[in-house]
Design a protein around this nucleic acid. Structure first.
Lengths: 224, 224
DNA sequence: GTCTATAAAAAGATAGAC
DNA sequence: GTCTATCTTTTTATAGAC
């Protein structure tokens, strides 16, 4: 009998992963460009350069394709969080939240942020039944939640706000259409657009009350 | 010859309008519940209670249905703006913007805000070719733009922000998914949810620097 | 696993009688 | 204008050879 009944299993595995990675890349881009409903499996197959039937050997359904894309971007977000915590262990929690949100916005403008419709219940069910997806969402929410709690404790984040409101808001801003509209206007670069939307997100639309110009009484006291 | 070749044309017209109004109501609700891509013409016909072919006698396409729903909600928004300007002529521009945005958020939570995908280019083209829709969007943007300019002039709205950023942001908040998520949590009523999201929109996530607690020196001066 | 070819079903739109 | 019945296209998914 042969000494290697299954020669180089690692190599085959690696090849499989590379192929599936290419598929997920295509899905990711198409989801970012066209959204879930407008993306077709034929487009994915054509983009990857394989037959549609081959695609279904790797992923069981269109929903599975979307889930895989979400898992990847969630892993990237988790890596970004870990990187931030490692490189800047002393970073203020509010600044950490701002950095992660800015990273997500950059991803969106770069066409790397898959966008799924909130209203497609079939897709929603499929995602909630996908353990890998749910686990990552919970882990990321835990990490962000810790920063939110800390930022509220140190007084940099409004302590009155329900933490879940903050969490939802940050997730939503990662897909905020305002970003694309502002960028499409042509007046601002991608980075500038991100800074503007980040600013409105954290500092609001209203003018700051005191910081820019002190009150007359305060000025009198300080001067006299 | 008969004295009335076309008997009671007004009555027929009125009947037609009532029917089309019922259609638009169904479309509006389905667009709010399921979104454009997940809404089917069959569902609309079934909801109205007429045959699909009859539907196509009133509206030429699915895109036309969506456009009609948007026109109606834009008219409602314009009526709200006019009502605000008439009943409270002295209202501060910032408060006017806040009131209109809050009204839109209430509409969303009530299931009356049709949501169209930003990425469907076919739909986008159809809308941009629809004069009634474009006119109303421009008119509403003009009204809001006037308030934005005024609010920046009186210093209540951050004067550094590009006005188009503010405009885009207000439009986007009318469809903000955060609202539905917060409401779905069950902790807050619809009105409370609107207030929370309004607050984060205008005041941001960060804590205010000075307003909530005055500085020690200021307190000393005020007390002594 | 990859391919070609083909279901199978959904959905937008229309024909033609009344 | 409203209906039933049908068309046409698109799209998800699979059969079966290699």
């Amino acid at each position: 009998m042969s000494a290697n009944p299954t020669p180089r299993p690692r190599f085959r595995e690696q090849l499989l992963r590379v192929r599936e990675d290419a598929i997920v890349s295509s899905v990711n881009r198409l989801l970012a460009e066209r959204g879930y409903d407008q993306m077709t499996v034929d487009q994915v197959a054509a983009d990857v350069g394989i037959a549609k039937a081959s695609l279904y050997k790797h992923f069981a359904s269109k929903e599975a394709l979307a889930a895989a894309a979400m898992v990847r971007v969630l892993d990237q977000a988790l890596a970004e969080v870990a990187d931030l915590a490692e490189r800047q262990p002393a970073i203020a929690p509010l600044q950490a939240l701002r950095a992660i949100t800015g990273w997500a916005m950059q991803q969106q403008l770069a066409g790397c942020m898959p966008s799924l419709p909130a209203q497609n219940s079939a897709l929603r069910s499929a995602l909630l039944g996908h353990k890998g997806y749910v686990d990552r969402v919970m882990t990321l929410s835990d990490r962000l939640g810790a920063w939110i709690t800390a930022a509220q404790a140190d007084g940099s984040l409004d302590p009155d706000l329900p933490p879940e409101l903050v969490l939802y808001t940050l997730y939503a801003r990662a897909c905020d259409p305002v970003l694309g509209l502002l960028r499409a206007g042509g007046t601002y670069s991608a980075d500038e657009s991100v800074q503007w939307v980040l600013r409105t997100c954290f500092e609001g639309l209203q003018a700051k009350p005191a910081t820019p110009q002190r009150s007359a009484r305060e000025q009198l006291v300080a001067t006299g």
